[in-house]
Amino acid sequence: MNDLWNQITLSWEWLTASAQWHGEEGIPHRLLQHVIYSGISLLCAAVIGLALGLLVGHTGRGGFLAVSVANIARAVPTFGLVLIIVLIDYSITPVLVALVALAVPPILVNTFEGVRAVDPDAKDAARGMGMTGWGVLWRAEVPMALPLILLGLRTSAVQVVATATIAAYPGFGGLGRYIIDGLARNDYQLVVGGTVLVVLLAIIVQTAFAGLRRLLVSPGLLGSARS
């Protein structure tokens, strides 16, 4: 118990020390790096995952293939992927590729399932009233699938934020730096401090998506989910 309390006080001291809030090694700089890596990865993953998910969900073709590939991709260890690619090309790109590979499956699978689960009667009515294929997609399928689409994005975002710590292994900074350095030096104050920052960032992301859901999803869908 004492040990734990000790850890917490030490970590708190580390977090609040003014030295941590300045310069290249400071928290703001590391945080910014972390957010940039996560943001770029999530953006790329969203473009790929949403496009494929909508295409497959709307046409109803290739669903099994898409979901299978996505699930296999989930099984690939991200860390291993980073190491392999870094050996080929030493830059930040392999890290981003690995994060994108991690983030695409939840987005793709949720988007696909969301569109597929849209009430067939509503789709039939949309078509029967004179919506074009695009009209059905944008006016009916996407709004109705939105809760699941956002869930996929949120899952991926949290995973990416947590996993972007690996950028520090090949030496590209981010919040992972503290954890890796701390582990190397047996400096647990540093490890816990870095971890707390990552967790805080993940919580902020989670909250942001909850807000986005309130803002974007029609009350007609949230209401029926509650009842």
Partner: peptide, 18 residues
């Protein structure tokens, strides 16, 4: 063509988000 023809189906097929 369909915009000029009324269409009603069994379970109404209303849009839940509207």
């Amino acid at each position: 063509l369909r915009r000029g023809i009324g269409y009603v189906i069994q379970h109404a097929g209303l849009f839940p988000h509207r």
